[in-house]
Write a protein that binds this DNA or RNA. Structure first.
Lengths: 222, 222
DNA sequence: ACCTGAACACCGTTCAAGT
DNA sequence: ACCTGAACACCGTTCAAGT
């Protein structure tokens, strides 16, 4: 009995040709459904019904792939605060919080963002939005230029740190260590005590963002 | 012919008993000789002449192992600026630069420091040193408490970003993207132009640290 | 030019079984 | 209690060979 290639080709649609766009799109699907940890060359090849080696025609390595995924996901950042009313500092903080939320929902993405920083259109739009808000606040150009980098870096690092859920034991380790600090060996730690760990995380974050914005706005360049 | 276990035991010294300290010490040797990428359970077991599974009696997982290595390496941070003369801000920046140098010389360590933050004695000494300098500058306790976290976080993220040597192409990708930004779509990026990428890295870093210290010192807590 | 199979050189972690 | 061998379930990347 002869097989029916035509029919079976119609049942499962013909394998689409590989393109960089297709690979990135499949990667984004994968990060949404299974997390960044599963966006591997082998898993991705499986999803695209091809061999891992085939992907290397379009993507240099795994790091570049992850950077492309991030570029894509940055489209989810809410930039509307740029054109609303209210204090420019608050709106700047809102954009950064939205950026952090995107990183936050895909564990591992923030860490990869630190190593392979994106340069796609969505990243540029984010930079542009932040620069416009700094300009609205009359922050000098030189300080805005150098500050934007640190603003994004700190937001990314903050997200990286909180994205991986700290296990109870890990957290306890630091808490215990800080509480055990005796005044004779660690006088300042002992003096500040609980305050080092205190405060609701959102309040700490808001203070942190405001602190950065203040620093950028008020520190003249040499 | 019968083998000579006694003699061969003397030629190669008896396998030392496994301890957590021994495992961490071997890990530190390994990170120095082969880099953090090679500090794996399997490679480490090989170095200790044991089976990978044996290590799990003393170490929960690879992340915990890497955190222990960092704890240990933080002993190299130069804390002497705490007790020298000069502006407290400059001495604070010096300590942070020394911290970054440690992270810098062991690629990958900074990234791991973001995920599994250390809590060992060397980390506490670093925190204590920074707090003492902030106290010398009469920074209010509440701001010091919340600021210290962000100070270390930003320094770590900065090191993580620069530890992995940016390939020429990656760097070009961002440069090209920024230069290609047209005034109609990205007006602020176009207006700032080269300045976004300009300046010698040490000058940018010094400004960044000073900016953070200013922010912490001058942003009141709610 | 693109795609594949196969291989090389690795990983983390678990678990039954031994001492 | 500690250690081991073996297994399970994966990785990234390269390369000769095919189309």
């Amino acid at each position: 009995m002869i097989s029916e290639p035509t029919r079976s080709r119609r049942e499962r649609p013909a394998k689409p040709a590989l393109t960089r766009e297709g690979i990135v799109a499949a990667s984004v699907d994968l990060v949404r459904s299974e997390g960044l940890k599963r966006v591997t060359m082998r898993r991705l090849a499986e999803a695209l019904d091809t061999a891992p080696a085939s992907l290397y025609v379009y993507v240099r390595n795994t790091a570049e792939l992850h950077a492309a995924v991030l570029d894509e996901l940055l489209g989810e950042v809410d930039l509307t605060p740029v054109h609303t009313t209210g204090e420019w500092q608050d709106r700047l903080a809102d954009v950064l919080r939205s950026y952090m939320r995107v990183l936050f929902t895909h564990p591992g993405l923030a860490a990869s963002a630190l190593v392979a920083r994106p340069s796609g259109p969505n990243y540029l739009s984010l930079v542009e939005a932040l620069l416009e808000l700094l300009a609205e606040g009359d922050v000098p150009d030189g300080q805005a230029s150098w500050g934007i980098d640190l603003l994004l870096l700190t937001a990314t690092a903050n997200a990286a740190e909180h994205a991986v859920p700290r296990s109870e034991e890990d957290w306890d380790a630091l808490t215990v260590a800080l509480r055990a600090a005796t005044p004779d060996t660690y006088p300042r730690i002992a003096a500040l005590g609980e305050d080092l760990l205190s405060g609701p995380p959102p309040a700490r974050l808001s203070w942190g963002l405001r602190m950065l914005i203040n620093g950028i706005a008020n520190t003249p360049r040499p």
